[in-house]
Write a protein that binds this DNA or RNA. Structure first.
Lengths: 373, 373
DNA sequence: TGACTATACGGCCATATTGCCGTATTCACC
DNA sequence: GGTGAATACGGCAATATGGCCGTATAGTCA
């Protein structure tokens, strides 16, 4: 209390600006005193770079490192990265292999890099997305390969009702593709066994689209997952959003678990809230992306809802300079509908990687579990 | 990290370096071509400054602007702000009133500033937090004033069970303070009328703590809301987290709606998951903050769970340079327990501002709704 | 009124980042 | 073994940001 006012002043001027000589001296003194060395922002950047190299298979140049960093949510220009790499070289943490191949970590560098902190341990979604994209292999040319799926578990007794609900969502193209897979208790779906007493439903995850674009050479940034308001069957605006970078949970999964959607209303009356994801692609790649999108559509993958124009906001959401916005359907929309219908379901997004062929068109699935009359 | 900028994060374009001459030329060409001028990162910063001045009642200097910006998630030093202010002066968007009073917006400036985009329209939680903090008025000295509450609605028939559940949570101090308010249908709670057929329960929101510290001159940054694992009654680690800056929803509210907590288990057996929030305070204010914390405790406000050391990670979560971490209880933990017990409840966090006196100690509330034997 | 204090400005300089570009090293392919 | 493309490096200069400090202004108070 007594120091209230004084301290207030100190805090406000924490940065030194306008602080009178006396206090400044005290601050300096404290600083130079007992405290041990502390990471400066600069050091943190360097550590991030070390980690990036660590994750890549050694020798790497600034551009590769840059891509990793970007994925980690740190934007630095290549020149800047080289600037730090030079410093790291001097500190003996990295070493220039050759002018063509770039740098590798020294032993000490590898050591530094493997210190992880909590946030990394828990894992930000964007990192999981990157990992999944890296592992998938679906190719537009062949129409085959592995795709990323979400897995949901329901009670086997509910399957017919569930399919009935999902069918309408697929029919209105509020999902990534009209395909799904259903696995019975004990069967295998992807790398996991379906637990007893449950049916597993696999739906294509919208992150698969990132992978497809990626394969065509178009890098995609996942910005945020959101709830998109639909009016008269047209997307209108985002009503809620959570950044992928700032979350350890998939936002869309969270929205669905919190029962915040109204996909059924959208299907029935054309008004309501669905899950959608906002992404960005480089403006230069826009034309190419449109072609890819057409090709996807021809393959029955219709998850791209809208593509914006260079540097122009899309649904009022501003995009980064040099990029264009892309809005894609949430792969979990069918599952959302099912929960809205009161059918209990646990949701797990980005769950696994499976062959595209193992997912069947809704109609075929319906043939196996015909709807009650 | 480089100064974060929330959803509007200025994501920089990777361009130029490493791109072969051909593409670089294309980029340049497009740029000079038909497209209209585009915001550079620099401009975005300026717009943020314009907005900050707009929100403050005109004439303001760099330090006031800085505080607003900080609250908006943009960290800039005062000197830097002045640097931009000079440019804005030249562009005719701001005007120097007097060397003591700072700047005000010109007409053109005010115009620029009032252009809002989607993200602002929806509203990031951190902005809501700031607004609430600004409006509250509780004073530690007097023990009175207005505090921020969360409002939850339940079925009146459930009230006794609900109180029974909440009581244990309060008893174990997993909430901000052992007080709550209950309002019947038709009664007024804060600024809103309780809807027919529901009881409203008001619990103190943890953001109130920000306000208390603020009042003592200690600025508090809300970093993220998370799920905190408790083992043997001791906080252990965060298992999920969502940044306040990257979300339009209160993360804790979302976790609770998604039924991801196990507060009852924590109360009963000492192991489980509760809601908690991670915040940062300037390292220089740490000692003062401890005093304030003791004073709060003396007033029955015990929501501060842990305070870290300068620049040191807390529960493995790294803090910004020059700051210390603070973990506070989620004000909604009692409500989480109630939902876990199967009592339906809708949750609305940061709902309102009410007089501290209007919240009663649990025991008194229990006297009005005695538990069944 | 005159001393003192709080708040703000802007000059000067250091550091951090980025832009532009010429050069080095490999690789794939003639 | 020569050529062109791709990838990487680092020098040099321009911006952006932050630190330090002297000065200007407007209240407060004896």
């Amino acid at each position: 209390m007594l120091c209230g006012r004084g301290l207030l002043a100190v805090l406000r001027r924490r940065r030194g600006d306008g602080v009178s000589g006396g206090i400044r001296r005290i601050l300096r003194h404290e600083k130079g005193n007992g405290e041990r060395a502390v990471l400066t922002r600069n050091d943190r950047t360097k550590i991030a770079i070390l980690r990036a190299i660590h994750e890549l298979v050694s020798p790497a140049g600034a551009s590769k490192v840059g891509e990793r960093l970007e994925a980690m949510g740190i934007s630095l220009h290549q020149r800047t990265i080289r600037y730090y790499l030079m410093q790291l070289d001097n500190e003996g943490l990295t070493r220039l292999v050759s002018r063509r191949r770039g740098r590798e970590l020294t032993e000490r560098g590898a050591e530094e890099a493997s210190q992880v902190d909590a946030v990394d341990k828990i894992g930000i979604v964007s990192a999981k997305i990157d990992a999944a994209v890296y592992r998938m292999s679906y190719s537009l040319t062949t129409g085959a390969g592995k795709v990323i799926i979400n897995r949901s578990l329901i009670d086997p007794a509910d399957i017919r009702r569930a399919l009935d609900e999902m069918r309408t969502v697929f029919a209105n193209a509020y999902a990534v593709a009209s395909r799904l897979s259903v696995a019975k208790p004990g069967e295998q779906m992807g790398s996991e066994r379906v637990p007893d007493g449950s049916l597993a439903i696999g739906t294509i995850c919208s992150v698969t689209l990132n992978g497809i674009f990626q394969k065509e050479g178009i890098p995609v940034r996942s910005r945020f997952g959101g709830l998109l308001e639909i009016r008269d069957r047209r997307p209108t605006r985002f009503v809620e959003m959570i950044e992928y970078r700032g979350s350890t949970l998939d936002p869309l999964e969270t929205f669905i678990r919190a029962d915040m959607t109204s996909v059924r209303e959208v299907v029935r009356r054309g008004n309501g809230i669905i899950c959608a994801s906002f992404r960005e692609i480089p403006a230069v790649a826009l034309e190419h992306a449109r072609q890819v999108e057409r090709a996807m559509r021809a393959r029955g993958i219709s998850g791209v809802m809208a593509m914006g124009r260079p540097n122009q906001p899309l649904f009022d959401v501003p995009v980064s300079e040099g990029y264009a916005g892309v809005v894609v359907m949430g792969g979990l929309n069918p599952i959302a509908a099912l929960r809205e219908a009161g059918i209990p379901a646990t949701v797990h997004s980005l769950a696994d990687i499976v062959a595209f062929d193992s997912l069947l068109p809704v109609n075929e699935v319906l043939r196996r579990w015909p709807l009650p009359e």
